[in-house]
């Protein structure tokens, strides 16, 4: 990246323009959190129970929040800090954003990460990321309140036991997909044995914590963090 472009992509104006979206994300989380907290108090969920939930959520979010750091640094090198900050704080994951940057640069005859990536390619990338994220935002805006009514309708029309199982089945399907897609490459059907070891080690630790210490609430809150660290360590040590 030329030094002139580097100044543009890290300019104070772009930091400000990017901040508007990060503010939206943070403000929405604050508003929803306050609304949830009020409701928790109104329906008399004991403080220690929702407190345990909040602590556990915070601890569990640390690991997966750290995991995109490498891709974050590559993205900073491609499009600068403000855009990376904005786009990784909102809708798409790092790998999606990098793929979009690459496509948008190609569309104007440039290549991301090379000298050919100038202001025109950067503008094209900004538009492409915005258009891609808009797809998700628009669908969520248009469909969420309607889907909620759809679930209510299902409960009123069908056996409620079956609908509970249907919802549980969709959760199993989602996590099953997220898990297996980590292990099996969809494009080459290759199985990644190192990652299988990480999965098994983490699963065994979770199993031990759940079965051997069922009443230890503090341990339950940090169980995901412990399982994750053990899974990573075992895979790294065995395959270093």
């Amino acid at each position: 990246m030329s030094s002139e472009l580097e100044q543009i992509v890290n300019s104070p104006g772009l930091w400000l323009a990017s901040a508007l979206m990060v503010i939206a994300v943070a403000a929405m989380a604050v508003i929803f959190f306050n609304t949830g907290l009020k409701e928790a108090k109104r329906i008399q969920i004991p403080k220690e129970r929702y407190g345990a939930g909040i602590r556990s959520a915070a601890i569990s979010a640390i690991g997966p929040s750290i995991s995109p750091v490498i891709i974050l640094l590559s993205m900073v090198a491609l499009v600068g800090a403000p855009t990376t900050w904005m786009r990784l704080s909102d809708v798409g994951a790092g790998r999606t954003e990098i793929a979009v940057i690459s496509m948008a640069a190609n569309a104007v005859g440039a290549e991301a990460g090379t000298a050919s990536f100038g202001i025109e390619a950067f503008t094209s990338s900004l538009w492409a990321m915005a258009l891609n994220n808009f797809g998700w935002l628009f669908v969520v805006l248009a469909l969420t309140h309607r889907m909620d009514k759809g679930v209510e309708l299902l409960y009123s029309k069908f056996d409620s036991k079956w609908i509970k199982m249907l919802l549980a089945g969709s959760t199993l399907g989602l996590f099953g997909y997220l898990l297996t897609s980590q292990l099996i490459s969809r494009t080459s059907s290759n199985v990644n044995y190192q990652k299988i070891v990480a999965v098994l080690a983490a699963a065994v630790v979770t199993l031990i914590i759940t079965k051997a210490f069922p009443n230890n609430k503090r341990l339950k809150e940090v169980s995901l963090g412990i399982s994750m660290i053990v899974g990573m360590a075992v895979a790294q040590i065995l395959f270093k």
Partner: peptide, 21 residues
């Protein structure tokens, strides 16, 4: 070694969650 271990964060995470389910 720590940077390489980052590759295993998500598999370990989903392994732990799925065993719970």
């Amino acid at each position: 070694a720590v940077l390489d271990a980052f590759n295993y964060i998500l598999p370990a995470l989903f392994g732990s969650i799925y065993i719970d389910l």
